[in-house]
């Protein structure tokens, strides 16, 4: 049962540090979980390999996490408006398949194809946004339906896994020799911090926190929702490009898993499912937590067949822990 966050009523003066702590508790928790995961991984790595994780381990972790991190940022924007986007997997399937058949070794082609694919992703998001915003339909069923449509289109584009991604393209997006892909995440974080301060960013948070109040304050909710879903679609397309670059080929079904993992990532990243709370930085942290969990399970020599079990278990533990700590922090203030 959704309940009030308990803020506002009887608010008293708090020190800026205390206020920031309360506002960012989800993010702080995500960072803490990530840190613990990295420490556990490093200890296991040192015990088994007799050295610290080096450039190779960091690079492959970053490169493997890129598609999920980008998809999770898109999911965050939608969930902040109190929506949910299940079409993530379909958009990534479609854009990944398109990238594999359209990309050629020359730079002009790569630039044009990338832009076109991002626009196609944005168009997919726009359709979701129009149906949710103008159509006043429930996000969960709309995106379930469009998921099916986008998956179908992806298989039409690339019936069998194949195609090829030029090595130059792969080298630019996911350099196998150094974690340069972190630059793209840094750009994403800077853009996010900028967006957060624009009218659009504030409107997105306002809709998620209290849609009626947002309407009363003159927020154009329909327009804002449409833009939010469109932005998310563009981000999924970029995730599809990164996925194609990492795999150096296309597959119209590899994107499917991102619907679930993007949701898991944002929950681990402290984004509230009830809207209005969360950040792209948390989503990125959540994506890295998932990769670290997989790495840890690998080094703990746990049968990979049990992977889904541990992911589900950690998800529940993280959510319950997050809610408990959040309540404790708010109760004490």
């Amino acid at each position: 049962m959704p309940r009030d966050s308990g803020e506002g009523a009887g608010a008293r003066w708090r020190s800026p540090a205390s206020h920031a702590f309360g506002q960012h508790i989800g993010l702080i928790l995500a960072a803490a979980i990530l840190l613990v995961a990295i420490i556990i991984f490093s200890v296991m790595f040192v015990i088994q390999q007799h050295r610290l994780p080096g450039n190779f381990e960091i690079t492959s972790t970053v490169n493997n996490t890129m598609p999920l991190a980008l998809a999770a940022i898109g999911q965050t924007i939608v969930v902040l408006t109190r929506g949910i986007d299940l079409s993530v997997g379909g958009v990534i399937d479609l854009t990944n398949a398109l990238a594999a058949i359209l990309l050629r070794p020359n730079l002009g082609n790569q630039l044009a194809v990338s832009v076109i694919i991002i626009l196609i992703g944005a168009a997919g998001g726009l359709i979701n946004g129009l149906l949710v915003g103008l159509g006043r339909l429930q996000p969960i069923v709309v995106t379930l339906a469009t998921l099916s449509i986008y998956q179908g289109l992806a298989i039409r584009v690339l019936p069998q896994p194949g195609g090829a991604v030029p090595p130059g393209y792969t080298g630019f997006l996911v350099n196998p020799n150094a974690p340069t892909a972190l630059v793209f995440l840094l750009i994403a974080i800077v853009l996010w911090l900028g967006l957060r301060r624009t009218r659009l960013g504030v409107d997105i948070f306002a809709i998620g926190a209290d849609e009626q109040a947002a309407i009363a304050l003159g927020v154009r909710t329909v327009r804002t929702k449409i833009i939010a879903y469109t932005l998310a679609g563009a981000l999924y397309a970029i995730a599809g490009l990164f996925l194609a670059a990492t795999a150096t080929a296309g597959d119209a079904t590899t994107g499917d898993s991102y619907t679930l993992t993007s949701i898991v990532a944002i929950v681990l990243g402290g984004v509230s499912f009830f809207g209005g709370r969360g950040s792209a930085i948390g989503a990125i942290a959540g994506a890295f937590i998932i990769t670290m969990i997989v790495n840890i399970l690998f080094f703990a020599k746990i049968n990979p067949l049990y992977q889904a079990f541990y992911e589900g278990l950690f998800l529940v533990i993280a959510v319950v822990l997050g809610a408990l700590i959040g309540r404790l922090v708010r109760a004490r203030r």
Binding site: V264, Y306, G312
Partner: peptide, 26 residues
């Protein structure tokens, strides 16, 4: 978990799907 731990139904049942999947496969 939905009732007493206030985990959103989407998240809880998604996690349960993974838990049952992992257990079944394992």
């Amino acid at each position: 978990f939905v009732v007493w731990f206030e985990v959103p139904a989407v998240v809880m049942t998604l996690a349960m799907n993974g838990i049952v999947e992992g257990l079944t496969l394992g």
